[in-house]
Amino acid sequence: MADLKYESPTTTEAAVALLAAGGEMARVFAGGTDLLVQMHEEMIEPTLLVDIKSIKETREITFEADYVRIGAAVTGAELGENDKLVAMWPGVVEAVELIGSYQVQGRATIAGNLCNASPAADSVPAMIAAGASVCIAGPTGTHEIPVEQMAVSPGKTSLAQGEFVTSILLPNRPSNAGDAYLRFIPRTEMDIAVVGVGVSIELNADGTCASARLSLGAVSATAQLVKAASGILVGNKLDDTVLEALASAASDACSPIDDKRGTIEFRTKVAGVLACRATKIAWQRAEKN
């Protein structure tokens, strides 16, 4: 029965030092909505919690020249209250806001959702579609990676010992662009995604698609970018033929499992359905922007 220690460093450097020294039994603690559940269920028994919420930069949303920076400890509720961010990336914010209840929203963070490395994490397909990247601090300094490189398998990230996420970067959205996230759950709230789809669309002046990114969650070991979707959408308008091809591409990209939340057959079919529905929403948003 190892004792648990709690530290609340105020600088990134101090946090890195603590995490590096803490080894495998150290955990980054921000919102705690996954971590404390795992501890409650005795799935993990860490010996050190490094609370990063006292590090100023993890608590801020800042709009910079080419991107918006979301601190790793910014909560879902805070994201939803940031009108500028909501206007820029409504799909990403909606995805984060789907995580858990209002109570969970007051604590849960977008970075935590990413680092939990669940294939069903709601914010991740939305971030992949948005082309987001992750700022990582570690013993060797800081670096950035695309969001899709964070999770390597269910529950496992590419973070090295002593590394942690300090912020998420969302690129400034071009004009004539929009994004959306939809998920399927059996209830209306409080469920884990059975299928999640994030879409980001940029339109040409003539109303055809200039660029598109579509990402699927909960249908493979990690959330994935559906590369074929871009080829189907770019240069085209959204008609039935395109939507049919898009649905097929999304379903084809699935390699899901049967589990307590859904079947292979169901997930594969519904991925196609939601891909079309989410694309329509993103498209409408792009037309308005």
């Binding site: 705690g32 909505t33 559940v37 409650h40 509720a77 109570q103 969970v104 604590r107 409080m190």
Partner: peptide
């Protein structure tokens, strides 16, 4: 585990599940 809301309290004007917050925070 934050799924039932029975322990909802308000901390710094936000509703949260008391089971998902540590005392030390």
């Amino acid at each position: 585990s934050g799924d039932c809301g029975s322990c909802t309290v308000i901390v710094n004007d936000r509703p949260i599940n008391a089971c998902l917050v540590l005392g030390v925070e």
